[in-house]
Nucleic acid binder design. Structure first.
Lengths: 224, 224
DNA sequence: CCATACTTGCTATCCAGCAAGCAAGCGAAG
DNA sequence: CTTCGCTTGCTTGCTGGATAGCAAGTATGG
């Protein structure tokens, strides 16, 4: 072993505290997580989280920022990967939806943190949501360009993107509540895959429907 | 006035406490809501919530149960209304989705309570979710019968129903976080209506896609 | 006058933040 | 090379504020 666990190592401690805090904030929420618990899980003492991060609120902020950074870089690399090779627009959409579904499923901590934030976190986040917001804008521009949809805010592309996010997001949070209540099992990998397949089918089908609706409108406009 | 506000009236007090608690639990969550706050908002003293409901946990439970009851009766009456008159399956589906979208939008407290519950409420709800679960089963049976889909758990009807719930649910929670991040405005009634229209179009379009996929499978099966 | 509807005082618990202390590396003076 | 002293990592004791729940008190109406 390169270093004993007993040695002093601030980087290691910071990372361990961030990991512990992310897990506990995601699991129990801000109010129900004590700094003592964070220290315990991180293998440091009661006071160390406060020592490194100043206050509980600052620690929470640091957790959020680290999550956002991870997500942003992941979204970037995923997008690059999606555009390699030549595929039809529908294939690209299907692949992106599938990837995003897996992406969120693999990051329940992130999803839960944002969820709690949406419900009104510690203090209402009035600050700029720059990191995730920019990721959203990137995704919006990409989907609009790729599918030939209106890229305006609240336009077709934004609506479709929000639908995709809704469909991929919801099962992560509600596997044991709503999904169970409406009779969808999500506990096994197979069930998970089946859900993903349904979502992809719904979105690609919906894209066709949007196109045809737009065609209808064009026809109506032409005939008027 | 039939009764002075100063008179003793346990029913009135109980209802006021439930209203106040529902609002505060939905807004700030269980942990950040104190019984003193509930009493203050309900116009009673600090100790009255405890007097009527025993403990904070019991009060929370009572709030949830009242919400579930309301929702269940609302779902029943909405379903009856949907089946009056003769419409195509697609029209019925579109109407139901539209109604459900409005239904959830009009009940943010309910949505937020369930959301917090899904994130792991006060104590993990290991108890039976009988009320909402039965409402989900009713909806599942109805949608399967009406659209001629497979009513089995995790079958087509269940998947579609979960998608509908996802799409209608998400904007209520994430109007200021994710929706804003992907460029969808939901702040005005018009924007809200536009979102609803998109959801309805997506679901009805998705239904057609599901049908055609099933046809494909049938054709494949037949040709095999 | 008594049961019931409330209120108020009290206490035990929890926890965030601070402040003081201990210990481990580390560079420089001797 | 070694020891002295400073910086930094980390721990522990303490305090003040919040709050749930209980117990004792007060008031109101039948």
């Amino acid at each position: 072993m390169t270093r004993s666990d007993r040695e002093r190592d601030p980087d290691r401690s910071r990372a361990a505290i961030l990991d512990a805090a992310e897990q506990l904030f995601a699991e129990h929420g801000y109010a129900l997580t004590s700094l003592a618990e964070v220290g315990l899980r991180a293998g440091v003492s009661r006071g160390t989280p406060g020592y490194f991060f100043g206050s509980k609120a600052d620690l929470y902020q640091a957790v959020l920022e680290r999550s956002f950074d991870e997500v942003r870089t992941a979204v970037r690399s995923g997008r690059e990967r999606a555009l390699t090779g030549d595929h039809t627009a529908e294939e690209i959409l299907a692949g992106a939806v599938s990837d995003y579904f897996d992406f969120l499923s693999a990051r329940p901590n992130f999803v839960r943190l944002i969820e709690r934030e949406a419900l009104g976190g510690p203090a209402r986040l009035g600050r700029e949501d720059a990191p995730p917001l920019s990721a959203g804008e990137e995704a919006l521009a990409a989907i609009a360009a790729e599918l030939g949809l209106d890229p305006a805010p609240s336009g077709e592309a934004a609506q479709l993107l929000l639908s995709i996010v809704s469909l991929c997001w919801f099962p992560v949070v509600h596997a044991d509540t709503v999904a169970r209540a409406v009779g969808v099992d999500l506990s096994t990998p197979e069930a998970h895959a089946a859900r993903k397949q349904h979502v992809v089918a719904l979105v690609t089908g919906g894209l066709r429907a949007l196109s045809s609706i737009r065609s209808d409108h064009l026809l109506q406009d032409a005939s008027a």
